[in-house]
């Protein structure tokens, strides 16, 4: 990016910037809820409170793939597609989640097949990312190389002293700055990126090859014995994209209805069930294995990027305490030298 892409905004002006943005588009920002933060649509003039915000409990994929999103609508024999092209912005999304979003793009709009429903939402999403200043308890983005961004954002905020350095990553980003020009001053550059200080890590060197050696390992059976198949991991994972198409007739008029996208989870039995009730992944071991291999091996082969961005949400949510970094370490310990 050119020299004129760097700006600075003082912390006291941040609310004003967000307020101005909410007038132009829907803004999703971290809002305090439940045990931590969730991305929610800000109401007009809603106060932003990022005190203690490291990352959200649930991932931002619901902005691009909302639960129960109508994809097709039918009224008797008239059928039409539904696209959401409302302009939206996601604010304070972390680098790991931006990497996850870029990965979802490769899945939903790559391989020579573009899903237009996803594309409509994606084209109309402004990405305002924010670098991390500290790591969460379960973060391991550093080892997954997802703790920094070189692109994929319209604006990138980095906290520094009494304000934020802001880098514009696109023309759209520059325009947003221009629209609130009074709040920003030009800056000579960005501060050096500091490491967030993750305590967990996955050693990814040659990991796919090592994982392949472990294909029939008892490690997966042992882990499966602990797994409750609650699907929490697949729910909170920012790169899990599997979904179902559900026909939902209107209860008030059965001749009308919608076909909706509902997220689905490979951890559940029903995921691989075919007509006649045969389930291909009947045993928990098979499903647990599919999850870990998809995250650390298959994703790399299909999209050229690991399907794990080190956000640590699955570790946080798992009731049985299953930890992907520990699983990877177990595999490496047992199979790396063989």
């Amino acid at each position: 990016m050119t020299q004129d892409s760097y700006y600075f905004i003082e912390k006291k002006d941040l609310q004003g910037f967000i307020d101005a943005l909410t007038l132009k588009m829907s803004v999703f920002a971290p809002v305090r809820k439940g045990r931590g933060f969730r991305f929610e649509k800000l109401k007009n003039k809603q106060k932003l409170d990022l005190n203690g915000y490291i990352n959200t409990e649930f991932p931002p994929k619901s902005i691009l793939m909302p639960e129960g999103e109508a994809l097709v609508r039918y009224k008797e024999s008239m059928i039409c597609e539904v696209f959401d092209d409302v302009k939206k912005a996601v604010f304070a999304i972390r680098p790991c989640d931006v990497h996850a979003m870029l990965l979802l793009d490769k899945v939903m709009m790559g391989h020579g097949d573009i899903e237009e429903h996803y594309e409509a939402r994606r084209k109309n999403l402004i990405v305002i990312a924010m670098n991390c200043t500290e790591a969460g308890e379960n973060c391991f983005c550093e080892s997954m190389e997802t703790d920094r961004l070189y692109g994929g954002f319209d604006l990138l905020f980095t906290e520094n002293g009494n304000g934020y350095h802001v880098e514009a990553g696109s023309e759209e980003g520059k325009k947003i700055i221009d629209d609130s020009a009074k709040l920003f001053r030009k800056s000579s550059g960005m501060p050096a990126k500091t490491k967030p200080g993750c305590t967990k890590k996955i050693d990814t060197a040659g990991l796919p090859e090592i994982m392949k050696k472990a294909a029939n390992s008892s490690i997966w059976e042992d882990t499966a014995k602990r797994c409750l198949s609650c699907a929490s991991c697949t729910f909170v994972c920012p790169t899990c994209y599997c979904f179902s198409l559900k026909h939902e007739p209107d209860v008030t008029d059965l001749k009308n209805g919608e076909v909706k996208r509902e997220m689905d989870y490979c951890m559940l039995l029903r995921f691989s069930k075919v007509a006649g009730d045969y389930v291909f992944r009947q045993h928990r071991t098979e499903r647990v294995k599919q999850f870990f291999y998809h995250k650390l091996v298959y994703g790399l082969e299909n999209e050229g990027k690991n399907h794990c961005v080190g956000c640590g949400r699955c570790i946080t949510e798992c009731m049985a305490g299953i930890d992907i970094t520990e699983e990877a370490a177990k595999v490496r310990k047992k199979y790396a030298k063989v």
Binding site: V107, M108, H111, D113, E115, Y241, C242, F243, S244, L245, D264, C266, F271, S272, K273, V274, F280, Q290, Y293, H294, V297, Y298, E301, N302
Partner: peptide, 24 residues
């Protein structure tokens, strides 16, 4: 091969065998 298919275009994940999608 037969698998559960929903999207037909290799996105919904239901038909995957390892890294391959039966529909795609």
């Amino acid at each position: 091969l037969e698998r559960m298919m929903q999207c037909g275009i290799g996105k919904c994940g239901h038909c995957n065998i390892g890294d391959k999608y039966v529909c795609r």
